[in-house]
Design a protein around this nucleic acid. Sequence first.
DNA 1: TAGGTGACCCGCG
DNA 2: GCGCGGGCCACCT
Length: 112
Amino acid sequence: MNSEKENYFDWVYQVVREIPAGRVTSYGAIAHFLGLKSGARMVGYAMNASHTVNDVPAHRVVNRKGLLTGKHHFATPTQMEELLRSEGIHVENDQVIDFESRFWSPEKELKP
DNA sequence: TAGGTGACCCGCG
DNA sequence: GCGCGGGCCACCT
């Protein structure tokens, strides 16, 4: 059955699920919020496994520069861009427009 | 068993 | 001010 190794994966998934529509966050922010000192890379790996679990809005998670680095991992390279645009986020050249304003901080919003 | 990779981030030149 | 390389840990072959 389920291995407990998914524990830290689940932490990432739950935080990503808490991201409101029209907002985006970065891997490092989630890593820092969860205390994953290991680095933001582990968060990216969790996203890679997000395909194996239920609805995880990985398209709302982008890198520190607001670039859709993981778009290539979606069903289609344009899927992430279309999804973000569908939420009201403008994306140009694989880059989120007004990323800093759309940035959603888990430590500020999710944290009490 | 061991090695290499990776949806990244930070620091230094 | 900007660009490039190294480093970090976990998963895969």
